[in-house]
Simulated scan of single mutants.
Amino acid sequence: MLNRGYSSSDTPVESIWFYSEMERRGINPNKLTFPFLLKACASFLGLTAGRQIQVEVLKHGFDSDVYVGNNLIHLYGSCKKTYDARKMFDEMTDRNFVSWNSIMTALVENGLAQYGFVEEALQLFAKMMKESTVRPKYVTFLGVLCACSHTALVDDGYKYFHEMEKAHKIKPMIIHYRAMVDILGRACRLNEAYDFI
């Protein structure tokens, strides 16, 4: 539990020290140990430490744990290693809602500099809807709308915004309205953006 506390503290690097201390004392990690270590690495952008933790994950046989996988995707996305995040996602045998959202977020956030990543996030959303039992939530649609904003897909943005409530019964929040205004603003459709509010 100390590991969990350190990973969310102002000094997340302490969780790495704590893990080293556990090893030194011969205390075996469990499946809850590694997600918190990876979360800590992501928070201080500790890519090297994260890769070392991934080696420990493999060594202890937790590489197929969905929570470990999700945190590796988050780590690589936070450290702008989008290809590594996507590779981790593709290799996961079990995916949940967090898995899909983590990879889409990594692609959108890192795709701001490269158009292809944002487009890939939208393709993954379509794949999730078609091939997965995972259903989108409000945060999923936020990522999709951000992707539409950065690729000037105004019509798609409208479609996803309306689909959110009509098809998925998710009431848009202020943040979704902001995303739609951003989509319209970037497309220089300021009157529509004003009317949308």
Rank of each mutant, 00 (worst) to 15 (best):
R51Y: 04
C146Q: 14
E56Y: 05
K159E: 09
V55Q: 09
D84Y: 11
A152N: 08
I16D: 05
D90C: 06
N110R: 10
K127C: 06
M1F: 00
T151D: 09
A167D: 11
R95H: 12
F34G: 03
Y19P: 05
L112W: 03
L122H: 08
L190A: 08
Y19I: 15
D10R: 15
K169Q: 11
K59S: 14
Y19V: 15
D182C: 01
S149K: 11
L107C: 09
I73W: 05
H162K: 02
V139S: 05
E91N: 12
G157W: 08
G111N: 06
V55F: 09
D156C: 03
K169E: 07
R135C: 06
E192L: 12
Y138E: 13
I16L: 14
V108G: 10
S64A: 14
E163F: 02
F18T: 04
T133G: 12
V66Y: 13
M180F: 02
G77T: 07
M164Y: 05
W100S: 01
Y138H: 12
S99E: 06
T11W: 04
L32P: 00
C148N: 10
R4N: 07
F62E: 01
P12Y: 07
R95I: 12
E21S: 08
R95G: 10
N96P: 11
K159R: 04
L142Q: 15
Q52E: 13
W100N: 01
N101V: 14
I197N: 15
K31F: 01
V98Q: 12
Y19Q: 03
Y19F: 13
R186G: 01
V154R: 07
G77F: 11
L58N: 13
W17V: 03
S132L: 02
G111V: 02
Y194L: 05
S99H: 14
D155E: 10
A179K: 04
R25A: 10
I53W: 02
T82K: 08
M164I: 04
S102A: 15
E91C: 06
F34T: 15
E56C: 14
L153M: 09
T11I: 07
L72I: 06
I197V: 12
D182V: 00
S7P: 00
P35N: 01
P12L: 03
